[in-house]
Amino acid sequence: MNPASQARTPDDDEIRMIIEELRSLEGPLLPMLHRIQDRFGYIPPNAMPLIADALNITRAELHGVVSFYHDFRAAPAGRHVVKICRAEACQAVGAARLAEATLERLGLGWHGTTANGAVTVEPVYCLGLCACGPAAMVDDKVVGRVDEDRMASLLAEAGA
């Protein structure tokens, strides 16, 4: 949940420690993947065989799980992740226009990262801020009633 901020080279032993801490849970896989991504900013390739081995599942099955969920990344994101809500309640107050303008200003498509590596822009389908849209989230911080000016200052703060 704390994307990108501390992406660094993942170490097998550190991954093993995370796996060990969580393996006694009922259904430990998602908690493991979240913890690993929190630590490294993505699910590093070397984590895959370690997890598959510890949980006695095939690598194909594990790949199926990791790739199923929008949250899990195969590569690190930018230093900050800006999520813009695309869902209906925000659309009712101009979210589609805001998203288009933001992507155009940055010259990115959805999931794109700015050239300086500062910001990755992602769509999100509802942040539960449906009475104060358009809504966005910068890393874990929620922002409501975002217009183009507000977005510009959020992006500037994030170093885009």
């Binding site: 949940m1 259904g27 430990p28 896989l29 998602l30 908690p31 993947l33 979240h34 949980l55 199926g64 799980v65 199923f68 969920y69 929008h70 949250d71 899990f72 389908y125």
Partner: peptide, 24 residues
């Protein structure tokens, strides 16, 4: 337990699969 961004996991059986550590 924290979900992982899949809308369909709001469906109860997909949710249970996800909770078990499977695809939703």
């Amino acid at each position: 337990r924290v979900g992982a961004g899949a809308y369909v996991c709001g469906e109860e059986t997909a949710l249970l699969n996800s909770l078990e550590g499977k695809r939703g």
